[in-house]
Design a protein around this nucleic acid. Structure first.
Lengths: 100, 100
DNA sequence: TCAGGTACTAACAAAAAAGTTAGAAATGCG
DNA sequence: CGCATTTCTAACTTTTTTGTTAGTACCTGA
């Protein structure tokens, strides 16, 4: 359990992984738009950590202006079940989100 | 995903839920021994939040000295899949825990 | 020449989470 | 009486996390 906690904790990581799971490759700017509320600092910070933990791949194209894509790595894809279960957990408990 | 994040974030919650899943009912003191490293404040704090979110039941016996047991609620049991997947995630990546 | 676009970085500030320490309540037992 | 037991509170400090703001690099196209 400790491993999962260490790798997934962080306010935005699960969201980011969720979007990458749903969309495949996403550019930095696309993620910024999708993950509403996140600051640039946090987005990069979380992406760096996810990359360091081997859950995502960072693909940089040597262009100007720069283009960088992120995608789930093979290891990241092993999280698919968890991510799916987690978002369906939300579905089952929509009431809780609204009541509060 | 937001719901799962809001309900599961907290450095100790997944551990606590994991122990309750494995052991059924556990007393406050038993949890304190199992969740190594946790302070009393945090243990109570996390238990209260889990209870508030409806994931665990708190059963207090009117005795002296006091006896309080905690167990997964029905809603908490819907997390079983997730908890199991998360701990098996650790198994698959034991190397990461050791290398670091 | 110079603004425009993209993915960052760095320095600092604020807020949130976690840790520490001391202690309360109530009853049984020697 | 005085002490032990068990669950939990409260006040305070430290640590960690997150937010804010400003700015960089590089080429392109007007």
């Amino acid at each position: 359990m400790a491993y999962a906690i260490s790798v997934l904790s962080g306010r935005w990581k699960l969201s980011i992984l969720g979007f990458l799971l749903d969309n495949g490759k996403l550019r930095y700017g696309e993620l910024k738009r999708k993950v509403i509320g996140i600051s640039e600092k946090m987005l990069i910070n979380q992406l760096k950590e996810l990359e360091k933990d081997g859950l995502i791949n960072r693909i940089a194209y040597p262009e100007v202006p720069p283009r960088v894509e992120y995608e789930l790595s093979d290891k990241g894809k092993t999280l698919e079940n968890i991510l799916v279960l987690m978002s369906s957990l939300g579905e089952e408990n929509v009431d809780n989100r609204i009541k509060t």
